[in-house]
Nucleic acid binder design. Structure first.
Lengths: 155, 155
DNA sequence: TATTGTTATACTCTATAACTATA
DNA sequence: TATAGTTATAGAGTATAACAATA
């Protein structure tokens, strides 16, 4: 009973978080997918498009489009790879770095804001519970995937 | 500090929930947007496309496309509105009803599964904390919106 | 022969604007 | 005149397949 309640609250929360983030991005002329790419560059440094594709979980073809768009809007740029002439290194521009720094600060502030008014003990308990739920979900997904590949092999 | 941790865990959890749900949908030949529409029909009964557009939060034009697709794949159908000849009533087919019943059951099972292994007291505390966070976020979003409209009026 | 990135093409979701049929 | 839904058009994100240049 309360498990369903927890799940429903989590889903409602996800939706609000996404909506909030998206409206912030739009103000800055960014989209979720492009921001994700910038975030990877911000935290991981310059990368080839193949590396970005793996980090984001999309095909290399999509990275071409995203980098094109980020270049056109001035957030990122392509630089030649120092040793591999096939590859390019995607890097943040000044503008891209600046906007990521701002978003990073906002992210930290939002985290603090969301738990304001809760005592430390409650936050700790909730965090432990969330991590437990996270682990359960990962396990369930892994089991699903295992069943899927069994089915595929049978077929 | 722990606020950021809570936020990051929530975001990681959201991502997993979305990925898990999406892979389930694909197995059934559904997409997230179409499933959302079916979900509204399942819980609210037959509706006009305008009502669906409001419930889902998209423009009426999009509902046309979604209903077209759901009709083509046999999950929903258009019926004439009994009193308004301009409007149509979108209803679930047998297939649509059946798949929604299955998903509803899976949703309940997932909720129970995610908190399995946590004692009741911990779940209650976590749920209270989540609801607090949910309220905080709603408040923050409302404040953002208010600031936005101020700016718009000045301009 | 394998890898990096691109061109070509297609599907989904979304939006605005103009239009038809009905209220 | 207002409302319900559609046609027309466009942008963003995603995918596969075929191909170029380079390793």
């Amino acid at each position: 009973m309360s498990g369903t309640k927890v799940l429903d609250t989590l889903l409602a929360l996800s939706q609000l978080l996404e909506a909030d983030q998206q409206s912030e991005l739009e103000r800055r002329g960014l989209t979720p997918a492009r921001t994700h790419l910038l975030w990877v560059l911000y935290h991981g440094g310059p990368a080839t498009q193949i590396q970005l594709a793996e980090a984001i979980g999309v095909t290399p073809r999509n990275v071409t489009t995203l980098v094109d768009a980020l270049h056109a809007t001035g957030f990122a740029r392509r630089a030649p790879h120092p040793t591999d002439r096939r590859a390019v290194l995607v890097t943040l521009t000044e503008r891209g770095l600046s906007v990521m720094e701002t978003m990073d600060a906002e992210h930290t502030a939002l985290g603090a804001d969301l738990v304001a008014g809760l005592d430390d003990e409650t936050v700790r308990t909730a965090l432990t519970a969330l991590e437990h739920v996270h682990d359960r979900l990962r396990t369930l997904i892994a089991e699903h995937a295992a069943r899927q590949s069994e089915r595929t092999e049978l077929a």
